[in-house]
Amino acid sequence: MLLEIKNLHASIGEKEILKGLNLSVKEGEIHAIMGPNGSGKSTLSAVLSGNPAFTVTKGSVRFKGMDLLGMAPEDRSREGLFLSFQYPVEIPGVSMVNFMRTAINEHRKYRKQEAMNASEFLKLMREKKALVELDNTLASRSVNEGFSGGEKKRNEIFQMAMLDPLLSILDETDSGLDIDALRVVAEGVNKIQTPQKSCIVITHYQRLLDYIVPDKVHVLFDGRIVKNGDFQLAKELEKHGYDWVKQELSD
């Protein structure tokens, strides 16, 4: 098992958002987590990536058998966890190239590998940029600064390709994307995917799942996973909305 979440409770400030969430992801699996606004989807991605704004009050998360919650955000990344942010952060004054080179080399240092030399690095960058059709000039600019919504999301997938994670969490990567950008981003994700790698796709809508086809679909509601299924479940949700799930729960 790559990721095993048991009875996870998490809050921001006094407010409890995750209320006993369970989820297991095996190597090679693609999971979709769907759910209405405010159900806790983004909190889940924040907690898994180690965002200090959230407090875990109960439960456990094991990643590659290790206690994920005890790890610093940077170590989670170095161990192969990646979060594609719903709202990528702009960092004026830090160039993409410098940012990625530092990130790659910190990963390598963690694995006791030597730092990548400049030409190797540039080659890698060229290769991965092509994957998501990222504009050449973007790489020399400051991280996400002045990027359009679509460029920001592409930039997330580019970083994912660069860091080559075992588990990627795509937090509403489809939001704010037009249909062409959505296709590019999704194809990028698919090209990166291998039988060893897993992916959690968090989304409101089915449309991303037309491109990134999930093995399992979960419905998150009020801080818990209340329904599990396959791709069929996503289609039903798209058709009927979440109300019937809520209805079912109250019955």
């Binding site: 955000p73 940077e74 990528p88 960092i91 940012f99």
Partner: peptide, 19 residues
Amino acid sequence: ALFYMRSRGLSEQEARMML
């Protein structure tokens, strides 16, 4: 920004320095 950078594997110290 600090968290974003750490989530990419930069140590807190390195990220602070870059910022």
